[in-house]
Simulated assay, not measured.
Amino acid sequence: MTTPAKLYGKDLSEYDEVDVDELLAKLSPEEIKILAKEVDPDDSFLPPSQRCNYDCEKEATGPLNRKQLIDHINKQAIEAPDEPELKPYVPGTIRGKKVVGASPPPLKEQEASEQITIDLGDEYEQALTDATQEEIIDLAAILGFHSMMNQDQYHASLLNKGQPLGLGWDGITKASKQKIYPQEPPNTTDIDATIKQVQQDDPKLVDLNWNNIKNISEEKFDSLFEGIENNTHLETLSLTNVGLTDRSAQKLADALEKNSTLRVVNVETNFISPTGIVQV
């Protein structure tokens, strides 16, 4: 058990209810000045101006001339003589105490300090014991141990010297090339024509896709959502990356409350806040 910390014979918990302001009010200006000097310079909770409280009682001799002060300091440093060494340097002599006859540590202690035993368990020990050299190389590369190789081993691994094809740096640890996918063709859907189809409840329009169409005005969205309210054939509505905002999302939410046929609505990658997403 640890002994609780005490201050002036009392436990620190007894000082929790002490009114510090009341104690400071009882101090005289001289006592406050003395207390201000007793500051812990390592207390990070105090500002530096208080941790380095410089108090000079001498009166100023005049305005500060920084250049003159630096020149004076440099002059004093150049003119001040070096302190002579207590013991002059003599080439070939050994200074200090030389330890003679120090015995090396016992052999058992050397072996214990040089060997580190890691218990991996019987399953991992058996797997590493039965692993081939190629599998050990791949495992070392996966774990990032290739940084421990010397220069010859590193270049040998790069050139796969002594390794069958498909192992080493060309094995499972080698990064696959990036697959380049063709860009999606631009969306050529006619906005005005599809809005009319939605408003006229065209039975042929079941899937409406406006994905990636730029610069759609708020009026176009309002017209579309007004038509969705009474539409009975539209089942899928895709509005990905079309610049939807919370205002348009609110209009869409109102339209969905009145529509009974829409099953899928996609509004990904838009300017909709989490609150607007919940409404939709």
Rank of each mutant, 00 (worst) to 15 (best):
Q68L: 15
A36P: 00
T3C: 02
N53Q: 01
L208E: 01
D43V: 02
W169C: 05
Q183E: 15
E111K: 08
I73W: 13
S248F: 00
S147K: 15
I277W: 00
I34K: 11
R51P: 01
D82S: 09
T232A: 01
I228L: 15
I216S: 05
N160W: 01
L165V: 13
Q115E: 13
D82H: 09
I136R: 14
T129A: 11
T93R: 04
V278F: 08
T245I: 01
E79A: 08
L143N: 07
G96K: 02
Y15L: 07
L23W: 04
L86K: 09
P4W: 05
A5G: 08
K179Y: 06
P182K: 04
N74P: 06
E57R: 10
D21H: 10
G92M: 04
E83W: 06
T189W: 00
T132Y: 04
T232R: 07
D19G: 05
D222A: 13
E79G: 01
I277D: 00
G144N: 09
G162S: 07
S157Y: 13
W169Y: 13
Y8S: 10
A25I: 08
L86F: 09
I216F: 06
A127F: 05
L12R: 04
V280D: 00
T275L: 09
L205M: 00
Q68H: 14
I118N: 00
P106W: 03
Q199P: 00
E57N: 11
L139M: 12
L234K: 04
L234M: 02
D82R: 15
D82I: 13
M149E: 11
Q200Y: 03
C52W: 12
D43K: 04
A5W: 05
P104A: 07
Q163W: 12
N230S: 12
G168I: 01
P88W: 08
V198A: 03
L158T: 10
V18F: 02
L69V: 12
S113H: 07
I272M: 02
Q68E: 15
L224W: 02
E109C: 02
V18Q: 11
G96I: 02
A60H: 10
G166W: 03
N209A: 08
D207E: 12
L120H: 11
D222F: 08
L158V: 15
V99I: 13
T2Y: 06
D40H: 05
L159K: 14
L107E: 07
T245G: 04
E125W: 05
S13T: 12
D21C: 11
K220Q: 12
L139R: 02
P47K: 14
T240Q: 05
E14W: 05
T236S: 10
